[in-house]
């Protein structure tokens, strides 16, 4: 284990509004406690973004820093090169939107860096609150829990898989299979999409949600071989340690159970359970 795993915190001064550095802390600590050497690179805008990182982490940000971050990433192309060369990319909230084809910030359509085929538009109201999703990675026995705070609606291209199905909250705010709760204003222009009132009822319990396929079920995030994105913002990996380990496993083979991680896993698991209960 002489090699060093390199975690790149991408433009943290622009994409780090919601405690997003927490995800870097979690990934680094969970590698270190397994005996790996870790290097964290704070790739701020005044430095060049490295192209040889093992995992790139992008967090949330306000509109104008988000546009600025997209501009820097478009110009440098470093993240595209790293991704094409096999690096893993983890994008959250604004950092998720940037990785697609386009997004809206300050009422302007901005070009993303196109790591995958999806785009984001502005919803008619902000989505703020607990977000619970069921991902195929873990099945129904380990729901992912986070907090979302964004005004975006994200539409995935045909070949792009979501990270999971939303049980509580809005996530991408869209279901590509057609049963969405959005009006398209009789327009074929996806930019005209406007978000209608979220129609799920909070008293549907998780169990029924998992057994009964509801007609409108939003998606959250995206998942492909080397790309994982979500609207569960901030330190989502602290609350869902298995998601952190899933990402690490894509970079390097890791042992599942390590004694040194016991305390972290215990608190993380108690936290996740408490947050899930709070939404019921």
């Amino acid at each position: 284990m002489d090699s060093v795993i390199c975690i790149v915190d991408v433009l943290p001064e622009l994409l780090g509004t919601y405690g997003d550095y927490g995800n870097v802390i979690v990934l680094a600590k969970r590698l270190q406690l397994r005996g790996f050497k870790v290097r964290i690179i704070q790739a701020t805008a005044d430095k060049s973004i490295p192209q040889t990182g093992d995992v790139y982490v992008l967090g949330g940000g306000e509109d104008s820093p988000q546009s600025e971050a997209a501009k820097i990433l478009r110009n440098s192309k470093s993240l595209n090169i790293a991704y094409d060369n096999g690096s893993f990319v983890f994008g959250v909230c604004a950092g998720f939107q940037i990785l697609g084809n386009s997004f809206v910030a300050d009422n302007k359509v901005e070009e993303g860096i196109g790591l995958a085929d999806f785009y984001s538009v502005r919803g008619s109201r902000r989505s703020v609150g607990e977000l619970v999703i069921n991902s195929d990675i873990f099945g129904p026995n380990y729901l992912l829990s986070g907090f979302e705070n964004h005004g975006g609606v994200t539409v995935l291209g045909q070949d792009v898989e979501p990270l999971g199905r939303v049980l509580i909250g809005k996530g991408n705010g869209y279901n590509e299979s057609g049963n969405s709760s959005y009006k398209t204003d009789n327009s074929t222009d996806p930019m005209q999409l406007s978000f209608n009132k979220y129609s799920r009822s909070i008293d549907d319990k998780f169990s029924s949600k998992m057994t009964k396929k509801t007609p409108i079920q939003f998606r959250d995030g995206i998942l492909s071989k080397r790309l994982l994105c979500t609207y569960m913002h901030g330190p989502v990996l602290a609350r869902n340690y298995k998601l952190a380990d899933f990402i690490l496993n894509q970079i390097v083979p890791i042992e599942d159970e390590v004694d040194a991680l016991g305390r972290l896993n215990t608190y993380s698991e108690r936290l996740r359970t408490e947050r899930l209960k709070s939404t019921l």
């Binding site: 703020v128 907090f147 602290a238």
Partner: peptide, 9 residues
């Protein structure tokens, strides 16, 4: 504020 994500800041 209902979201303590800032603890990581």
């Amino acid at each position: 504020g209902k979201d303590p994500s800032w603890l990581y800041d």
